[in-house]
Design a protein around this nucleic acid. Structure first.
Lengths: 348, 348
DNA sequence: ATGAAAGCGCTAACAC
DNA sequence: GTGTTAGCGCTTTCAT
């Protein structure tokens, strides 16, 4: 069953070194013997033993992706699993396998970053990093010493200098700003903002963007216009239901919901009281998850450029892996982009 | 940086074999030296080189999961990604990594089943197998010859005898039957069935279950009561919108939608014409995806026992991997289970 | 252009 | 109990 280069060597009447060279397409071996050997390998269904290979080359052909535990939760995964899919697609092209792991093994509590690197199971690491301090200085030192290429996605540790770490992420402040500015430009003056509980960095930034846009347009910010929920449909729904009197009283017409799921909930709540979107209310979501296309009206939302994030991340990682000489780190903040659809309209 | 057992051996003043034995908890080594060596390993942050280890033991500590391309599509993944999560959870307990791959590399078209096995990157394979003939006899022969443990999930090749292949899957016929029977028992006599386009085995079986339940209850089956869509919210929505006249004319009160997403769409369409669920229509979905809990009314649906599927699959795979003596294959069909929630009610 | 041989880090059979 | 040694399958000098 299992066929090794020695088997092929025997059949071809050459040394196993020659077989190795041939199958690795070395120019050091005569074209005809190379071809002969490749043919034999093909008919035998030969495949290199990845472990033996790794042992001598220190290349494994697999990439590790560190995926935050939280992101496995249903609502959150709606966005992130599609980021993962993009990454996988790139890696598939490169014929790289991927091992996805949480930062720590949830049972043994061991660091998967350390384990994967020290056990030499991977050639590089993509660290999806939800908050700004989830990786501590100890891990950073470890990563640096290990010399295994790695790149941060989403955020990078705050104690790192911008230009001291490879990282690709999106501009949540800008996204929040654009969403709000868009509503204002459509004629809305009374705009509420629905954000997430907790101190998740990205939501904090989106809210800051909201405030900044208001301020730039000379609209007074009102703390009571900020509502907090759990990022899901129900939360958006509940917030609207519970605050409808206030919303009507204040003459609200614009709603910036910081996740698409909350936006869906908001629209459902409005439907139930026979309010129409976008006729009565304009609403902008965030993320541009696939799910929103399943609902009407199709949501105007902030699209996170996941294709680009995935592409740039992988691209840079492979530069690192292939030892491309670069004197500097790559640290890119991508702009999110507002997609106009049917949940908003110009008023007045 | 990189520390090997030889380094530890030098420090401890023993041979590297003793270090190996100690760290593998062999009873052949004195307790105190064992402890001493473990301490050294700990302080040095030692971790076995997985490749070297695999090379001599033929164990890699990683499991391959073959995941059908289709299942990456948004709607489908809503169910399957949660199955994957369950599997990962089990494997995490066992400190196993997982490589998830499509049946073929979409670019090179090479079989990932073959590659992963021949390159010895995995200790076992879980093959999520959507249709009954996606794996052909050639791959089956290959799998058998390879002697790498594998198990089918979801379906297994039709040319295999029930007791000639390890497989865990659910009873879609029973699920369709139970959904329909439940509606009938609630007093519904005119029940439509919304299923999927295409020839996907599981939907075919669910529809057969529907027919059988009708027949058992002496309700005449009507071909016009079967509607076909694309498994998503929009499809359910459209089907209802387009056939409302027919549905009213026929006095339909029960709806069996073969995916939860379609059921959600159905309910939305009904809401739009001011029909109430469950007051006017009772509806049963299928899958029990997390998403349905975000909608009201909460859907009565057929729960696929994904925890159990995942558990049994992994359990059996590890039996195989650990060489547990069994004279027979494990081939289990699990019952799906109806979950009563708020989208159905008893009439009359 | 090809072969011989060492070595990657580990396990296990064999000695003592 | 512990050390010595061979070997897992491959790559890569170093010879020729």
């Amino acid at each position: 069953m299992k066929v090794t280069i020695k088997d092929i060597a025997k059949i071809a009447g050459v040394s196993h070194a020659t077989v190795s060279r041939s199958l690795n397409d070395s120019h050091l071996v005569a074209e005809d013997t190379k071809k002969r050997i490749k043919d034999i390998a093909d008919t035998l269904g030969f495949e290199f033993n990845a472990n033996a290979r790794s042992l001598s080359t220190n290349k494994t052909g697999t990439i590790g992706i560190i995926y935050p535990e939280r992101f496995g939760e249903f609502g959150v995964s709606l966005y992130y699993s599609s980021l993962l899919t993009q990454i996988r697609d790139y890696l598939e092209k490169e014929e790289m396998d991927t091992i996805v792991a949480f930062p720590k093994n949830r049972y043994s509590k061991d660091s998967n970053i350390k384990r994967l690197i020290l056990s030499r199971k991977i050639d590089g690491l993509i660290i999806i990093h939800p908050n700004i301090n989830d990786v501590d200085q100890k891990i950073m030192n470890f990563l640096e010493k290990s010399r295994v290429p790695y790149i941060f996605l989403h955020h990078y540790p705050s104690f790192c200098d911008v230009d001291s770490v490879d990282a690709i992420y999106t501009d949540h402040f800008g996204g929040g700003y654009d969403a709000t500015e868009y509503l204002i430009k459509q004629g809305h003056k009374n705009i509420i903002c629905i954000t997430s509980h907790g101190d998740s960095r990205e939501f904090y930034q989106r809210t800051n963007g909201y405030k900044a846009a208001l301020s730039d347009k000379n609209i007074k910010f009102n703390e009571n216009y900020i509502f907090r929920g759990y990022r899901d449909i129900i939360s958006g729904f509940r917030i609207m239901k519970d605050n409808m009197d206030f919303i009507i009283e204040k003459g609200i017409t614009g709603i910036f919901a910081q996740t698409d799921l909350m936006a869906i909930g908001v629209i459902q709540a409005l439907k139930e009281i026979d309010k129409s979107v976008p006729k009565d209310y304009s609403i902008v979501g965030y993320d541009d998850i696939e799910l929103i296309m399943e609902f009407k009206p199709n949501l105007t939302t902030i699209h996170q450029p996941r294709e680009e994030i995935a592409f740039l991340t992988c691209d840079r990682l492979f530069e690192l892996i292939n030892g491309v000489k670069t004197n500097s780190k790559v640290n890119i903040m991508l702009k999110a982009k507002l997609i106009e659809r049917d949940s908003t309209r110009k008023i007045i």
